[in-house]
């Protein structure tokens, strides 16, 4: 195997107005591995993923997937690149005007990979992969619990078998057992597809379960990178404070008194 990373970010910068959210991100993710990104609320983790997906246009920097800078591609090229990325959104973002099975099969139908008649059965197969019964397919997203919504979102993300997967806080708001179940599903899916993954999480247990490597985002920069197993004893003061949830430390929460 070559040493070329699957995803390679260099100097990625994004500001909203005069608020700098990403300030020169450099990050490599090797093919077939999972990268966990941690960082405080509002540190720009979701913006980072949306930049890679092309949903937000960065101000500067490069995003290479398989060595191709996708920011230099035209519209059609970007659409093509996007076909190989699956995304689990932070709040699910299920289409609430469509039943669950159509949500799951949406990407396949859009890419004309399946006929509409066959889609229902294929959706049932994908739902089974995330541990949901066939009958769930006929429900509406609003009829699902939070955990089920995450699983449907996961099913939708993996349905087209993408080689890159993004997970934005897959376990936030779930009970610890359901969190572990979702983590297990994510690891299974990533392994089965051989995909490259970036996962955002606040949950250290989850980070260690999902990730091969981990990176911490603070003030728009990557301040630490290492093996995910080292998260709890990284030797980096900022990471330590974050992972152990201490109030005192180098990171000062900007609270208005």
């Amino acid at each position: 195997m070559s040493a070329q990373p699957k995803i390679r970010l260099r100097g990625l910068t994004k500001a909203f107005g005069d608020k700098v959210v990403l300030d020169g991100i450099d990050l490599d993710v090797m093919a077939g591995t999972s990268m966990v990104v941690i960082g405080g609320s509002g540190s720009g983790k979701s913006v980072l993923l949306k930049c890679i997906l092309g949903l937000i246009e960065p101000d500067a920097g490069s995003i290479e997937i398989d060595g191709k800078n996708i920011l230099a591609l035209d519209r059609a090229g970007r659409e093509e690149a996007r076909k190989h990325i699956g995304m689990l959104f932070q709040n699910g973002a299920l289409f609430d005007s469509l039943p669950v099975w159509e949500n799951v099969a949406f990407g396949l139908l859009a890419q004309k990979k399946v006929e509409r008649r066959a889609a229902r059965a294929i959706a049932a197969g994908v739902l089974a992969q995330v541990g949901l019964a066939d009958s769930v397919g006929d429900l509406w997203p609003s009829e699902l619990s939070g955990g089920m919504q995450k699983r449907v979102g996961l099913a939708r993300a993996i349905a087209a078998q993408p080689d890159v997967l993004f997970f934005d806080e897959p376990t936030t708001g779930l009970d610890p057992i359901m969190g572990a179940v979702i983590d297990g599903l994510i690891v299974d899916c990533v392994k089965k597809l051989g995909s490259t993954a970036i996962a955002i999480t606040h949950d250290m247990a989850s980070a260690k379960r999902i990730g091969d490597r981990a990176a911490m985002l603070f003030k728009g920069r990557i301040v630490w990178q290492g093996a995910a197993s080292e998260l709890m004893d990284s030797g980096n003061a900022m990471v330590d404070q974050f992972t152990h949830g201490r109030r005192e430390g180098p990171i000062q929460m900007e609270l208005r008194k």
Partner: peptide, 20 residues
């Protein structure tokens, strides 16, 4: 209201990621 809700709940972004 429908499209606005889709916007603020990221459903429009989700469409884009699903080749639509």
């Amino acid at each position: 209201a429908e499209i606005g809700t889709m916007r603020v709940t990221d459903q429009i972004d989700a469409l884009t990621t699903l080749s639509t």
